[in-house]
């Protein structure tokens, strides 16, 4: 008759969980997002371990297969290109470029966006006006042509390309972080931190920004997908990563010339971009729900 004893299971569920554990629990409810995460990890591992998976170097040529692309066969699973290079190997190495450019450019964009948004939202006044004017100007130039212009004129190396994509992709993040800061800076915990003598730098980076981390994570995730897509579009048009370094975009560019005689060149790189983008978008969707504690 001891009805007041709380069952162990119930007690466990009432224990306060860590923030990340709670986010993970909520993220797991989205089956598509979990599948997306698994797909992304598998693709990333395939690219990362390309040297272990493929017996060929990405620029190794088989002299006997020069001239025209060869069809898929037992040695070359996806055939070879016109220079006798193994397509499967180039696809894996292309993934290295696509993933690293996507990830690094997204981090650059988020770092710039968070800094600009934080400073504008925290200090307000003329600092805010100036920073938001710059943001507005950059947001009013069509993004793809702008990146194409810069990348086409500079003819960048891969690190420069990362900087270009990141430097032109921070604006929406800045707006989101700014609006978070505008409301968070008025809250009591900021006032009390200020009252005990915290410097502005401490207030911005240690007190306010951690509270704006949820939208920042979602924005960064979506920026990864966006950057991968932009890199592949640039490389496809011949203004991004330049051969012989393979990227999914420039593999498709090369495949274009052989579309009628060697269509097998054009299918795998596009499928990889598609799978990656689908995975990233599903993850972003799941994260958005998992991080939104207001519902």
């Amino acid at each position: 008759m001891n009805q007041l004893v709380v069952s162990p299971a119930l007690r466990k569920s009432e224990e306060p969980r860590g923030w990340s554990a709670e986010v993970w629990r909520r993220f797991k409810r989205h089956r598509a997002s979990v599948v997306g995460l698994v797909v992304l990890i598998v693709l990333a591992l395939l690219s990362l371990f390309a040297p272990l998976i493929s017996p060929f170097a990405f620029d190794a040529q088989d002299i006997e297969l020069l001239g025209t692309p060869t069809a898929p066969n037992a040695t070359h699973w996806l055939g070879t290109d016109q220079l006798g290079r193994d397509n499967f190997t180039r696809l894996l190495y292309g993934g290295q470029i696509s993933f690293s450019v996507g990830l690094a450019a997204a981090l650059v964009a988020s770092a710039i966006g968070a800094t600009v948004g934080a400073i504008a939202g925290f200090y307000r006044g003329w600092v805010d006006v100036v920073l938001m004017r710059v943001t507005d100007i950059l947001l009013s130039i069509p993004p793809l042509p702008l990146i194409l212009l810069l990348s086409g004129l500079v003819r960048p190396s891969v690190p420069t390309l990362i900087l270009i994509i990141g430097a032109l992709g921070w604006m929406s993040t800045a707006r989101i972080i700014r609006s978070e800061f505008l409301s968070l800076r008025e809250r009591e915990f900021v006032q009390s931190a200020r009252a005990i003598g915290s410097t502005n730098g401490r207030l911005i980076w240690l007190h306010i920004l951690p509270n704006a981390i949820a939208p920042l994570i979602v924005a960064t995730t979506l920026a990864v997908g966006h950057s991968i897509l932009v890199e592949s579009a640039l490389s496809f048009l011949g203004f991004g990563v330049h051969p012989p370094t393979p990227s999914w975009g420039n593999l498709l560019n090369e495949a274009r010339q052989w579309l009628d005689s060697a269509p097998w060149l054009a299918i795998p790189p596009g499928a990889m971009i598609f799978a990656t983008m689908l995975a990233v978008n599903f993850i972003g969707d799941g994260l958005r729900d998992a991080l939104d504690f207001r519902n």
Partner: peptide
Amino acid sequence: SFSGISIPVFWVGLMAQLVFAI
């Protein structure tokens, strides 16, 4: 529609050329 947002336009273009033109 989720696929439509994720699929690279230039690849769809190439595939369409391959199927409908070639």
